[in-house]
């Protein structure tokens, strides 16, 4: 077994993991904000629907959701199926993580004191101006620690994509394991450790920047 071959294969798998990671973040971060607004909607039926949806998504395993997104449209014979594994994984991951993010966003919004909005109103600001200029920076500070937690979990959750045959890092490692090579499989841990290490440093920097106030 050529070591160079192994390293190239592992890096290819890691590339796929990173792609899933960033694509999921790109969709789930804004989608989570939308979910959070729907959850705070004053029209009650929308709020209840959103609550039920979040209950279902958070209450079932992500692995099951990937399988449902990938296979169920085809099985039900709706005339379309999701053939592309990456798209199926992206849909399942984005919706799942958007639900978790929305709860974090909501907590961050609720933690902004009512007095801040009142001060804005007395100063004649529109609600949108108050949200962008006053509430958002405070929400950002509030959500940073729980968000970093969730995002680090996402790094490792990318390994679930192997269930529908997407060749990400663990999938590649397992391939070697099946051929009887143990070391490459365990070496995958180094990739995760390095990636999470970089993320931890980035989040620590971001948190430090918000520490200058309050």
């Amino acid at each position: 077994m050529d070591i160079q071959q192994v390293v190239i294969a592992l890096f290819e798998g890691f590339g796929m993991s990173v792609a899933i990671f960033f694509a999921t973040l790109a969709v789930a971060l804004p989608l989570g904000l939308l979910f959070a607004f729907l959850q705070k909607c004053k029209f009650k039926p929308v709020k209840y629907l959103m609550d039920a949806f979040i209950w279902i998504i958070r209450g079932t395993p992500l692995m099951l959701q990937i399988i449902v997104v990938y296979y169920v449209p085809g099985l039900l014979d709706w005339g379309f199926g999701i053939r592309e594994e990456f798209v199926a994984v992206l849909i399942a991951f984005s919706i799942n993580y958007a639900c978790y993010f929305s709860v974090i966003y909501k907590g961050g919004m609720d933690a902004v004191p009512k007095g801040q909005y009142e001060a804005c109103q007395v100063l004649g600001m529109k609600k949108s101006q108050a949200f962008v200029n006053v509430a958002m920076p405070q929400i950002y500070k509030n959500i940073l620690p729980p968000m970093s937690n969730e995002i680090i979990t996402l790094v490792k959750d990318t390994s679930l994509a192997r269930i529908i045959g997407l060749s990400e890092l663990i999938f590649v490692g397992q391939d070697f394991l099946n051929k009887g090579y143990l070391a490459p499989f365990f070496a995958t841990a180094l990739f995760y450790l390095a990636f999470v290490g970089i993320l931890s440093i980035v989040f620590a920097k971001l948190e430090k920047r918000t520490n200058r106030y309050r």
């Binding site: 004191p113 007095g115 801040q116 009142e118 001060a119 007395v122 100063l123 004649g124 600001m125 101006q129 200029n133 006053v134 920076p137 405070q138 500070k141 918000t210 106030y213 309050r214």
Partner: peptide, 26 residues
């Protein structure tokens, strides 16, 4: 104009930024 009991200054802005925010926006 209203001055609150618990100030309600914007914690993420410096004193001068607190003061210029409303005149600039409104």
């Amino acid at each position: 104009g209203l001055v609150f009991q618990d100030f309600n200054l914007f914690p993420h802005k410096t004193v001068i930024e607190n003061l210029i925010m409303a005149p600039m926006l409104v």
